[in-house]
Simulated assay, not measured.
Amino acid sequence: MEDFKRMAIFASVVEQGSMSGAARLLDMTPSAISQHIRQLEREAGITLLHRSTRQLSLTDAGQRFYTQCATMCEVANRARAELAAERQEPSGELRMSAPAGFTQHAAPALGAWLARHPALRLRLLMDDAPIDLIQARVDLALRFGALADSSWVARLLGRSATVLCAAPQWIAAQNQPVRHPADLTQAHWLDMSRSDKPALELHWQHDASGEQAHFQVLPQMVSNHRSAVQQFCEAGLGVALLSAHDVTASLRAGRLVRLLPDWDMGQLDIWAVTPQRDVQSAKVRQAMEVLRQYFAQLDGMQQTL
């Protein structure tokens, strides 16, 4: 690396026409510049510059060497320009991973942004199983819920309220209205879980009175896919705790009805996770902000800074 530095200094001396000019440009002393040039000549065993009190001139070997040094500096400048452009304008391929439940949100969240940046390509990897970001060469991962400890960098995009839902036909089939969590202890429950834990533990708190309710139920249906649980719920097969950002459209369309809206049933954190801590590229920075803004405008979301 020291040789590269000396080559860049040599190119600057030639272009500035003097060691003092190169020193001013590089914020070095003329004596330091001279030492670097002499070291280059000692290591090569060749004179590169003819020196006089008035001017410097290149030897034949120095002229050929300068041509290669100038090319090296030009390539380095282009490389720096590429990095600067990457920080300012999203381009290239963005490799992003997300749970399968993000499928319904992918186009609404990212479509307009992609359309504004034709130099940007998206490779979206949908998988509920956590993947190794480094091994999969993922730039940005969308994660929901509690995060496992890791060296990765996580940014909180928002919090989605957990809401209790049932289909209109399920509600119509009940002998009595649902007014309290205790009314649901014998209901058919649908649950999203990635573990083999049989029971679903429920902990709720009433918004106004502070009353708490705690009980366990044995779900009739469990899936590791949120979308599957929601589909079973919309089919009238039971009640489910779902995330507000997933059920907004179904609630508006009347496919689902929210039960016990005065009870706090918790929230689901939504994270953007990246594998590196250094300066993020424009495509990663902008993707995180686009996702944050998208989730913030959905019903039941708590906006974050």
Rank of each mutant, 00 (worst) to 15 (best):
E2T: 13
F4A: 11
F4K: 09
K5A: 09
R6V: 06
R6T: 07
M7C: 10
F10A: 13
F10M: 13
S12T: 12
V13Q: 14
V13L: 15
V14R: 13
E15Y: 14
G21E: 14
A23R: 11
D27N: 15
S34V: 06
H36G: 01
H36S: 07
I37A: 11
I37M: 14
R38P: 00
Q39I: 02
L40T: 04
T47K: 05
T47V: 01
T53L: 03
Q55F: 00
L56N: 00
A61V: 05
F65A: 09
F65Y: 13
Q68L: 15
A70G: 02
M72V: 05
E74C: 06
V75Q: 13
N77W: 03
R80H: 02
A81I: 03
E82W: 01
L83M: 02
A85E: 10
Q88Y: 02
Q88F: 00
E89C: 03
E89L: 05
S91G: 06
S91N: 04
G92P: 02
L94D: 08
S97K: 03
P99H: 07
F102S: 06
H105S: 05
A106G: 03
L110M: 13
A112M: 05
L114F: 08
L114P: 09
L114A: 03
P118M: 01
A119Q: 11
R121M: 07
L125H: 14
L125M: 12
L125P: 00
D128N: 15
I131V: 15
L133D: 10
R143E: 14
G145S: 09
L157K: 04
A161S: 15
V163F: 13
V163G: 12
C165Q: 12
C165W: 04
I171T: 05
I171A: 07
Q174I: 04
Q176D: 09
P177R: 08
P181D: 05
L184A: 11
L190A: 08
R194E: 11
S195E: 10
P198K: 00
A199F: 06
Q205V: 06
D207Y: 00
Q212I: 01
F215C: 03
M221L: 13
V222P: 08
S223F: 08
H225F: 13
R226D: 12
V229S: 07
V229I: 15
Q230N: 10
Q230I: 14
Q231A: 15
C233W: 05
G236P: 05
L237R: 15
L237Q: 13
G238Q: 08
L242D: 05
D246W: 08
V247K: 06
R255E: 08
L256F: 04
L268N: 08
D269E: 13
A272C: 00
V273D: 02
R277K: 03
Q280M: 07
S281R: 11
S281F: 03
V284Q: 04
R285Y: 00
R285T: 12
M288T: 07
E289R: 12
Q297Y: 07
G300K: 10
Q302M: 14
